[in-house]
Amino acid sequence: MLMTLIVVLIVSGALLIGAAWGIYGKLPSGLDGFLVALAGGALLLSVTSELIQPSIEASSLWVAAIGVAAGAALFTAADYLIDEKWGADSGGGLLAAITLDGVPENLALGVALIGAGPSEVAALAGSILLSNLPEAAGGARDMARDGQSKGRVLALWAATAALLSAAAIAGNLLLEGASESHLAAIRCVAAGAVIASLATEVFPKAFKEDQHWAGIATALGAILAFALGSLDGG
């Protein structure tokens, strides 16, 4: 449980660091896009190797495929409601979008920590941390530009970090006694939601801000995630 708390605090703390970076720091838009693509590439490989592949081995290809498709469909439906009904640029809409993206990631992280050693979750936790930093920076920067006070923006991100931490801890505690087949299905649903969020939110943003280098940054992110994941094998 101690390792779970440490990992969750580090990953969710990246939201606050990223928000502060977005409000008080300044990076060229090209570099910002490069970092977003780097994080997206790392997260894409991590959910594939740390969530989907082990789930196929623990259950079956069909269970994994249905889970991934269901997670992607759930994210797409909810993302549509945020964009079309609530307004993704509003305070409530932005919070909903961030939460929708982060809850599957942190739920998957909590599940992945069940029975795992420190090195076994390095790729997934590291990739989520990398994705949280630029995502929070971009979101906080947009909110500040819309005229919201810096204190209110930081408070909103602090609340979001607390909510996502709770999701990871809940995933770890509530599902500890679940069977491997059930855990496999849950991991794949979470992975599907994350993949859909990468396709609709992360990579389009990266290409818009840094179209010439986004592909290279994505590949570098995948290599970084692979290097972190190789820690399992020594």
Rank of each mutant, 00 (worst) to 15 (best):
N132V: 01
L133T: 03
L133E: 03
P134C: 09
P134Y: 03
E135S: 03
E135D: 01
E135L: 04
A136S: 05
A136Y: 02
A137M: 05
G138S: 12
G139Q: 01
A140L: 02
R141Q: 09
R141S: 05
M143P: 07
M143I: 15
M143K: 13
R145T: 13
R145F: 14
R145C: 13
D146Q: 13
D146F: 15
D146A: 15
D146P: 13
G147R: 01
Q148M: 12
Q148K: 15
Q148S: 15
Q148G: 15
S149C: 11
K150M: 00
K150T: 10
K150Q: 09
G151S: 14
V153T: 02
L154H: 11
L156G: 02
W157Y: 11
A159F: 03
T160W: 01
A161L: 01
A161I: 02
A162P: 06
A162H: 08
L163Q: 03
L163G: 01
L163D: 00
L163M: 08
L164F: 06
L164I: 03
L164G: 00
S165V: 07
S165P: 04
S165A: 04
S165F: 06
A166H: 11
A166R: 11
A166F: 14
A168Y: 00
A170C: 12
G171F: 04
G171R: 03
G171Y: 04
N172V: 05
N172H: 09
N172F: 11
L173C: 09
L174A: 13
L175C: 02
L175A: 12
L175I: 09
L175S: 08
E176A: 13
E176Q: 14
E176P: 02
G177D: 09
S179Q: 12
E180D: 07
E180C: 06
E180V: 11
S181F: 13
H182T: 14
L183A: 07
A184F: 06
A184W: 08
A184P: 05
A185I: 07
A185T: 01
I186V: 07
I186D: 10
